[in-house]
Every structure is written in C-alpha cells, then in structure tokens.
Simulated assay, not measured.
Amino acid sequence: MKKDMNRMLVETVVRRTLKNIQNSPERETRNLVDLGLECSKGRFQKNFLRTTQKMLHNQESAYYSLVKNTVDSVDHDILTTFGINLGYNGCTKGARVIREVEAEYGFNVPWSITLVINEEKLDAEPDFYPSVLQQGISLGIHTYLFFILGDPEKILPLIEKQSECAFIIFLRGYQVSSSFVKKMKAVKNAMTLVYVNKDMPDACQKLRDVKLLYGVYKRYAEQDKKRILSGEWLNTVLPAKPAFAVLRADDSCTPETKKDVYDYVVSVRNSQKYPLVLMDLKYDILAIDRIISEEECMAEFNADGNLRTYEGLQREEKFNIFRHSLEDILREIQIAK
C-alpha cells in the first residue's frame, strides 16, 4: 500500500505537540494552529484554522482548558487517529475527492453520512453496512455518524475495519457497559456521544476512566428552548467533562426555535467561556458542507433505510439505501431539486 506522506508528516507533528502541550497548552496550541495554517491547502482547513487562530488570541479562552483536559485525559493514539481521520482524511483529502466527483458527475456529495443502524439488517446481511461505507469512501466521504439502539459492540468490528475513517457513535448511557468500554479501548478512530439523562454521568465516567474520547448530546423539543437558551442545560453537562456537547432538534420544533438554538450555539462558541465545543448536529453539518462543496448536502438514513435530507424525510422508494446504491440516491436528490 502506497504511504500517504502528507498524513505521516501531520501525524508526526500532532504526536510531538501532544507530548509538549501538557506543559504549555497555550503556546503549543497556538503553534500547532499556526503551523497548520501555513501548510493547509484545503478550503475547510484554511477557514477552520483562521477562525481558531483568531479565537486563540483570547488569553482567557476556556478552550485552553479544554485542550489541556482532553490531552491529559484521552489516549493520545485516539486523539491522533480520530483527529487526523476527521480533519485530514475527512475535510482535506476526502474533500478534494468530493469536489472532483461533484464536478465530473454533476451531483452533490455530503462530507458525512448518518446511519441509524438496523440490527436485523446488520445480523441478516453482514456485508450491507460495510458496502455502504465502501460506497461512501469511493465518493470521498470519511466521516460517519452511527445511532444504534441495541448492542453497540456489534458495530465495533465495522468501525475498526475502516481505519481511515472517523466514526461518531451516539448511545444511551445504559449502553455504555463495562464490556463495551473494554472493547472500545482498542478502537482508535471513533468517539462516543452519550445522551443526556440520568444515566449520562456514570457512562461518561466509565469512558473517562479508560481515557476514551467522548461527548454528550440531546435531542431537544420545543419545550426545551427556554432551558437551553438560558444556559441551564449546558451547565448541567459540564460536571461530566465532555469534549463536545451536541444538540439535535426534534421534528416538532418550529423553524424559529431551531434558528434561535443555533444562534445560541454559535454565540456560546464565540464567547469561549465553556471548556467544551457546543454544536448543532444539523446546522453545523451543513455549515461544514457549504465550505467543502458549492451547494449544501446532507444525508441521514433511518433504521428503515429511508433518507432524510436537510429538507426532511424522503419516503419514496428511490431514496431508500436498502434498495439502491448511495450514488444512485445522491443522483436522485440532484434530479429532484
């Protein structure tokens, strides 16, 4: 296999920085961002690093605490592998392939794919989900979000096999068992997001105890708006020390509520007062996609194989991943516009 020299160089710099950052998080973080900006070629990289560079001029930024806490508490192999798979493979190398495919074939390709895993399908057709991932990789997609309601250990072999991709696993606290945590220690290209409820603190502590990268997430409804915008919700998750906190709107939420929540998410990030990265699942995925591609594109497949785009659920059979290839579905989305 031909070695990617650019990736090897990036990995060398990241590993060296992780060693030094524990003693001087402010200086080493700024140096890493400055070096990345000098070497970056991709649009996403440049945009992200310029924003980060500007934010890090704030000496009181809570992101310095986030960096130090993460480096101290997370396995460096995970930080390196997941970070490079997401940033380099997903948003630089993969983004270049995405733009080439879009230019040549005339349909939009999302930078990430969300899959709600159907366990019956996973058990009955073990080649199905690996095939979907291979189809995505061939189009330049290296970032995958997995939701699974049953046994999460079933998807770990799938994740480990695609060692060049970055995976984000969304789980409930009760799914974070001692057995799962033990097996996750061997997985270097994934992070876990735990649903915020009474089971969250214990689940996060289990992940932290074995130096795994984790965050938390919440599917919010209309009645949660006030609690989110007041900052009350965010303050309840801080004791769990997540690196990320992700909000996802329920279908019942009004467009005004979704906009207000996203405006709040952006304002929290810009304020740099919290030692975590707050994100909105839908709108931040679209924001990244707009940087990578000319037009925004989003693809999520539910447990029945039906496609959800940023416009909503598409129930027509031609958009079902159980019946059609990923490329055919993306072509159909373009035709339907």
Rank of each mutant, 00 (worst) to 15 (best):
M1H: 03
K2E: 10
M8K: 09
M8P: 02
V14W: 07
R15D: 15
Q22T: 11
N23I: 01
P25W: 03
P25G: 03
T29C: 00
D34S: 11
G36Y: 02
L37M: 09
C39F: 10
S40Q: 08
G42V: 09
G42D: 15
G42C: 09
F44H: 00
Q45F: 11
N47I: 02
F48E: 14
L49A: 04
R50G: 14
R50A: 10
R50W: 11
T51H: 12
Q53I: 00
L56W: 15
Y64K: 01
V67R: 01
N69I: 01
T70N: 04
T70R: 10
V71C: 13
S73P: 00
H76D: 14
L79H: 05
T80R: 03
T81S: 00
F82Y: 14
C91W: 11
T92Q: 12
G94W: 00
G94P: 00
A95T: 01
E100H: 09
E100Y: 02
W111N: 05
S112C: 08
S112M: 06
V116L: 12
V116T: 13
V116N: 13
L122A: 13
E125N: 12
P126Q: 14
P126F: 03
S131K: 10
L139I: 03
T143A: 06
I148T: 03
G150A: 09
P152S: 05
L156P: 04
L158M: 14
L158G: 00
E160S: 06
K161G: 00
Q162V: 00
S163L: 03
I169D: 01
S177L: 13
F180V: 09
F180N: 06
V181A: 13
V181E: 06
A186D: 15
K188F: 01
T192R: 07
N197L: 01
K198T: 05
K198E: 15
D199Y: 12
D199H: 15
M200Y: 07
C204N: 04
K206S: 08
D209A: 07
L213M: 12
V216W: 10
K226G: 13
K226L: 14
S230A: 12
S230V: 02
G231A: 08
G231L: 04
P239Y: 09
P255C: 07
E256G: 01
T257R: 01
D260A: 06
V261A: 09
D263R: 03
V265S: 11
V265Y: 08
V266E: 10
R269H: 07
N270E: 15
S271F: 06
S271T: 01
Y274F: 08
Y274E: 14
P275V: 07
D280C: 04
L281E: 15
L281K: 06
K282H: 13
Y283E: 14
L286E: 15
D289L: 05
D289P: 08
I292P: 01
E294W: 08
C297E: 13
M298P: 00
E300K: 07
E300R: 12
N302C: 05
L307S: 11
T309L: 11
E317R: 04
F319G: 01
H324L: 12
L326A: 04
L330H: 05
L330P: 01
R331H: 11
E332T: 04
Q334I: 00
K337G: 12
